[in-house]
């Protein structure tokens, strides 16, 4: 039992090894060096541009020349509260709320089934079936709904064949949710958004449900609670952080989108469109910046509330 048959060479010395000495001695320096490049990129380039753009919300625009007046004023921010602009904000938040609720409704059974009943194989298949649409092309997905929702499209055809053509007409005749066809209505817009963001809701809800210990559900059942009661008093409260986490995505993504309303929707503007028009054809950067602050503020409030419910653990 011996190891004395070989002379161990000394490790090679060099500049790298000496640099390594310094970095292992000063781990803070190492952290700093690692952080500098990404921070330069995101902190300087990205955050810098963001502040410059959003900062212009305290400027105003000269109505006649159309140039930006570089004097601090609250006038532009107050413009948000003009009825026409305020409507845009309310409308967008309303749509985002509807989308979020619909997403939660559709996502829950999928997440619940995957979390509680699916075996490993089925669970993997479910995961892929959710991940694929999540990552596939945004525009392609919007396009798919344009096809389906078109007046001459598949939904109308199936509705007719199933004898629901009348019901569809009646729905479209309703104020607010209706319109000339599904592809030019809030109904179509909400459906498309729901479709786009659904995977973002399924994943956190499933994660939250998987954290519900099965014996907790069994214990509640053993104590004589009916399945409905178990669902309301045990499962739903424990799944709530997941729903809130999902809502962070569905809400914020809807607030910022301007392409879906442009392709599927009514002529009434939503937030994203307002920003797009203002910075483009209208050339009113200060007001565009002011509008951009709205989704950021709404999300900041949302996140603060969400943090209290423990939603971040479900992300």
């Amino acid at each position: 039992m011996s190891l004395a048959t070989f002379e161990l060479p000394e490790p090679r010395e060099g500049a790298l090894r000496r640099l390594s000495d310094v970095l292992t001695r000063h781990t803070r320096l190492l952290t700093l060096l690692l952080l500098v490049p990404p921070l330069l990129w995101l902190g300087l380039v990205y955050l810098g541009s963001l502040f410059v753009f959003l900062g212009q919300s305290i400027f105003s625009i000269d109505e006649f020349s159309g140039t930006i007046v570089r004097e601090p004023t609250t006038a532009t921010l107050l413009e948000l509260f003009r009825p026409a602009n305020y409507d845009i904000v309310l409308r967008t938040v309303g749509i985002a709320t509807a989308v979020t609720l619909l997403c939660a409704l559709i996502a829950f059974p999928i997440a619940y089934y995957a979390a509680r009943y699916a075996g490993p194989k089925v669970k993997a298949a479910f995961y892929l079936a959710v991940m694929m649409p999540l990552w596939s092309s945004y525009l392609v997905k919007v396009y798919g709904w344009k096809l389906l929702l078109a007046k001459e499209g598949a939904i109308g055809w199936f509705a007719d064949r199933l004898g629901l053509g009348g019901a569809l007409e009646a729905w479209l005749d309703l104020p607010l949710v209706g319109g000339p066809s599904l592809s030019v209505s809030y109904t179509g817009m909400v459906l498309t958004f729901t479709y786009l963001w659904l995977p973002f809701m399924i994943l956190p809800v499933q994660a939250a449900l998987e954290r519900v210990p099965p014996h907790l559900i069994e214990a509640a059942g053993d104590l004589g609670a009916s399945p409905g009661l178990v669902f309301r008093t045990v499962i739903l409260p424990l799944a709530m952080p997941g729903v809130v986490a999902g809502a962070i995505f569905t809400f914020s993504l809807t607030l910022g989108d301007y392409i879906v309303p442009q392709i599927i929707g009514t002529s009434a503007l939503v937030l994203g469109q307002a920003v797009y028009t203002l910075q483009g054809t209208a050339g009113n950067i200060p007001l565009a910046a002011a509008f951009s602050l709205v989704p950021i503020l709404v999300m900041a409030v949302f996140l603060t509330v969400a943090k209290r419910t423990g939603a971040f653990d479900a992300l």
Binding site: F6, P9, P11
Partner: peptide, 11 residues
């Protein structure tokens, strides 16, 4: 530990 000291594969 031998590899990082530059000892050859066979050895």
């Amino acid at each position: 530990g031998l590899k990082v000291r530059g000892v050859g594969r066979a050895e």
